[in-house]
Design a binder for these strands. Structure first.
Lengths: 238, 238
DNA sequence: TGAAATTCTCGTACGATGTACGAGAATAGA
DNA sequence: TCTATTCTCGTACATCGTACGAGAATTTCA
């Protein structure tokens, strides 16, 4: 499924990427498949993070030469887009909207959060690679259906979906950083010591008090639900 | 202001970074300054984006050899942290909290948005480099003072500030992407054509309708204010 | 049945990046 | 003046994305 797809500007051309028919019935048959390459890249990212996804490592994983990858994706940025849409295939929604659009929208966001926690590289990849593929569009279609009862116009519905997604990505990014910090106790302790030192300098009384009276520790689940409710319950139709 | 600062784990050690006294009164005197290096890096990022900030280019800008930079910052990640805190110096707040903490918190968020629009690389840098320096902590101190009337505990106040910051960063990221798209008309047109093609395939009726009935175009300013209000007005003290 | 056209494979090579190393220059205290 | 300390920076290396082009596989056409 190769092609040269000349593109004048920078970035990824969605038409070249997603609307390409599978025509070539001549010439040497492909030894690999786009699917296998994407799957290998996703596996790498899941296991070792986005930085581990190099063309060389992906090629080694599928047993191909490095440059063979370029027959299946014109460049790495495209490969990242393909990865994002690939995992978005897990976001399949079976239930039709219930009619309670706020509840449905919260379900959408919870699905997204679980999805991003399963693929921790997603928030970072999403922030730079935003060419929606078929799986992403299927999920968008569902979100728009959920928002139908609001009677809002198209631009508003799209904006709400984009903002919810951005919110979830931001939240999960933060959540993952916290979790990583607690898995590196040395670093977390160093940060606590640093903040304590700052709080003790007398010029940060509010910080000092906040650190000395922390209150009950917050769980990511309930905090997420709380912020999400605030955001969604505040949405008004019209 | 150099040092070797051995750090066992990965990442940046906040104590080594921000709590270092200026002791060395022996040996060759520095030819440059941390300030000048950071300023040059920020200038580069403002003008050409984060990718333009390479050690070589920063060094050239300051008139130093590449490796001289490493006397002022142990590695590039540290330099990015320094850049973030450097520009956060612009976030100085003079007015004390008014007592209307919701209004004050909205002002905080609007300050952050203006700040990030002035330094479009900030959201990306923030998502990976989160070791708060003195300027960041000063702003945090102000935010905590703003939240005092809520009577919330420390962890909740810190969480609210983190979430507001994440929300603003997410919003501005999106806003910048939109603006960049409208500055690359070819790409925007290609994306529109692509979405129109998808909408015409019959399997995306909601998307088709959303695109055909877009409604009044949304301005970033008012959309931001609207989402922010939803988020903040929904916060309850208790 | 060739010959030509097409398509995929992948070794080699190039420019860019972050930074380790260590020799040399400058400064301070003895 | 000697020695310890601190900063400067040329060289070198591993790693990255990917351009190039020769060779292998397969189809189409004469």
């Amino acid at each position: 499924m190769p092609s040269d797809g000349k593109s004048g500007a920078q970035g990824v051309d969605p038409e070249q990427l997603w609307l390409r028919p599978a025509e070539p019935r001549r010439g040497r048959r492909p030894s690999f498949s786009r699917e296998a390459i994407i799957a290998a890249a996703v596996e790498l990212a899941d296991a070792e993070g986005l930085d581990a996804v190099t063309m060389r490592r992906v090629a080694a994983e599928v047993g191909a030469g490095v440059m063979s990858l370029y027959s299946y994706a014109p460049d790495k940025e495209t490969l990242l887009n393909l990865m994002v849409d690939h995992v978005s295939g897990e976001l399949t929604v079976t239930d039709p909207p219930s009619g309670d659009w706020r509840a449905d929208l919260k379900t959408v966001a919870h699905l997204q959060r679980a999805h991003m926690l399963r693929h921790p590289w997603l928030p970072a990849a999403l922030s730079t690679h935003r060419v929606p593929g078929p799986n992403t569009l299927a999920f968008l279609e569902h979100a728009l259906a959920v928002l139908r009862p609001t009677g809002l116009d198209g631009a508003s519905k799209l904006e709400i979906f984009a903002q919810i997604t951005a919110f979830v990505a931001g939240y999960v990014t933060h959540e993952i950083a916290q979790a990583a910090a607690s898995r590196a106790p040395d670093r977390a302790a160093a940060e606590r010591r640093y903040l304590a030192a700052v709080a003790a300098d007398g010029r940060h009384p509010e910080l000092a008090e906040a650190l000395s009276a922390p209150g009950r520790p917050l769980t990511p689940d309930s905090t997420f639900a709380r912020f999400l409710s605030r955001l969604i319950d505040g949405l008004d139709t019209g």
